[in-house]
Computed example of a mutant assay.
Amino acid sequence: MTRPATRIELRREACEVITSETDRHLPRETGGILLGYGEDADIVITHALVVDGPGASTHTYVRDDVQANALLAAFLAPRADNDPTGYVGEWHSHPAPTGPSPTDIAAMQATAREHDGPVALLVHAPGARQPFFGLITRRQRSGRVTSKAATVLLPPSTSEALGPLPGGTVRGDGPV
């Protein structure tokens, strides 16, 4: 028996898409679908596709299902048969620093009823102390659907750490 997924590992390419699209659409919400695979007890997100949300506002995003299915089919079509990458969930942004709403959780539970494996939800709220909120929802063998908060592992920074500042750069009596 495998352990249920408890972490969402967000790879760089997917993270960049989500953060740039969130910034581009502020103050409205935006979102799309997540692609990746399961690895041990994690869901690894390798790609994030942006799906239009007609009528998106500062507190609502509902994706266009027809466009989402077309984008997913186009993404998967050229992939090799043995490529484990596939649909693993949904993402959207919250302009306010909040995690998944009760509406978000209910939508993910409806999605999980249609899937065999766990599905992830990432909410990107750039103003929050931790800007990514993760949720993993799954259908149990009994048919019951459960949702649990998940740790989101972000890609490592590509910026080099700053070394010591040159002498005299910072003075106790104010800026230089």
Rank of each mutant, 00 (worst) to 15 (best):
G55C: 06
G55N: 04
A56V: 01
S57P: 01
S57D: 08
T58W: 10
H59P: 00
Y61H: 05
R63T: 05
R63D: 07
R63N: 10
D64W: 06
D64P: 11
D65Y: 11
D65V: 15
A68G: 10
A68H: 06
N69Y: 07
A70E: 13
L71F: 05
L72P: 07
A73L: 13
A73K: 14
A73F: 08
A73I: 14
A74W: 06
F75T: 04
F75A: 12
L76A: 15
P78G: 08
A80E: 12
A80T: 09
A80S: 14
A80D: 07
D81V: 11
N82L: 12
N82Y: 09
D83L: 13
D83N: 07
T85R: 09
T85H: 05
T85K: 04
G86T: 14
G89Q: 04
E90S: 14
W91K: 10
W91M: 01
W91V: 06
S93W: 02
H94W: 05
H94K: 00
H94A: 03
H94M: 01
H94V: 02
P95L: 04
P95Y: 06
P97D: 05
T98G: 02
T98W: 01
G99Q: 02
G99L: 00
G99H: 02
I105S: 11
A106D: 11
A106M: 05
A107Q: 14
M108H: 14
A110P: 12
A110H: 10
T111A: 15
A112Q: 07
E114L: 14
E114W: 06
H115G: 04
H115K: 14
H115A: 09
D116R: 08
G117Y: 05
V119G: 02
V119C: 04
V119K: 03
V119A: 04
A120C: 07
H124P: 02
A125D: 00
A125V: 02
G127T: 03
G127P: 01
A128L: 00
A128P: 00
A128C: 03
R129K: 10
P131S: 08
F132P: 00
F132E: 00
F133T: 02
F133P: 01
F133H: 12
G134R: 00
G134V: 02
L135S: 08
I136W: 00
T137P: 08
R138L: 08
Q140L: 14
R141L: 11
R141M: 12
R141Q: 11
R141K: 11
R141G: 11
S142P: 04
S142H: 05
S142Y: 01
R144W: 08
R144H: 09
R144T: 11
T146F: 11
S147E: 04
K148Y: 06
A149V: 12
